[in-house]
Amino acid sequence: MTIPTIASYPIPTDLPQNRVNWLPDPSRAVLLIHDMQEYFLDFYDSAAAPIPTLIEHIRQLREACDAAGVPVVYTAQPGEQSLKDRALLQEFWGPGLTARPERAPVVAALAPRAGDVVLTKWRYSAFARTDLAERMQAWGRDQLIVCGVYAHIGCQVSATEAFMRDIQPFMVSDAVADFSLDRHLQALDYVAQRSGVVLDTAKTLACLRPAAAAETLPANPAALKADVAALLQIPASDLHDDDNLLFAGLDSIRLMSLIERWRRAGATLAFIDLAERPTLQDWWQLLEASQQG
């Protein structure tokens, strides 16, 4: 069998309830533009929903990531694939793109630019037989924003494998497309309930484009607690002054993002200062000493 002809359908606007309250952070995220090749879009009417909206929303996400310094990664299947390389895909989908290798390029409106990473895609998951995980680790990134096609196949599987690698995945509900509205909704529901967070483009852009404001240091211990709670994405009431914040989930990546923000506001703290004394009461003393210095 092959990919079916895909009828036009409206992109859903009613989103499933997420089980967790993660939000994309420009200092932690990578944008994955998944399989936006001419071949895979040829099964749609390019002038009808959902394609024009899909392409426009991915373009907006890519621009916001460029502005925020978020790495952009593409997956693209090669036009030439041996039977050994296709393996079980051959039995499910036939020759696929190898029957039309001239349609291998990413659509012109989203063509990769110098500096973007293009991974050769061999299986449903963007992590399979690629160095995506290693690149993200080298970049110090632990969030993956997923957009592209097809939502219930490669996008969902890539998001779920990210989760299994302790990378927070985000599926952008109106920047993915699928075989049908039902399949689209199925993918959104699975990710929201089992492996990540579903957000629309507007919410994702708001996270990537925070309102411009001068960085400031916490004005008092309560403000410090609120700052750290927001970073951990938990209620401030869950934190106590003598809690070990490393045990509470504050990993090295988040700690570095906090230090960098405080440094921009004028603090002279080092990573080791906070890591060796990982409680709110100690951090407040260090902040006060830093400001006095």
Rank of each mutant, 00 (worst) to 15 (best):
P4G: 10
A7H: 00
N18A: 10
V20D: 11
P24W: 09
P26I: 09
P26M: 08
H34W: 02
Q37S: 12
E38F: 02
F43Y: 15
S46M: 09
A47E: 15
A47K: 14
P50F: 01
Q60H: 07
C65H: 03
A68V: 05
V70I: 12
P71A: 05
Y74W: 03
T75M: 04
A76I: 03
P78K: 04
Q90H: 07
E91N: 10
E102A: 12
P105S: 08
R113F: 00
V118T: 13
K121L: 07
R123K: 09
T130M: 11
A133C: 02
D142G: 07
L144R: 08
V146P: 02
C147T: 14
Q156F: 01
A159C: 10
Q168G: 03
Q168N: 07
P169F: 03
F170P: 01
S173Q: 07
A175W: 01
F179E: 00
D182N: 07
R183L: 08
A187R: 00
L188V: 01
Y190Q: 05
L199C: 11
L205E: 03
A212S: 14
A219V: 04
L232E: 07
Q233L: 05
P235A: 09
L239R: 05
H240W: 09
D242I: 08
A248D: 09
S252Y: 14
M256K: 11
I259S: 12
A267C: 07
A270V: 02
W283A: 13
E288L: 13
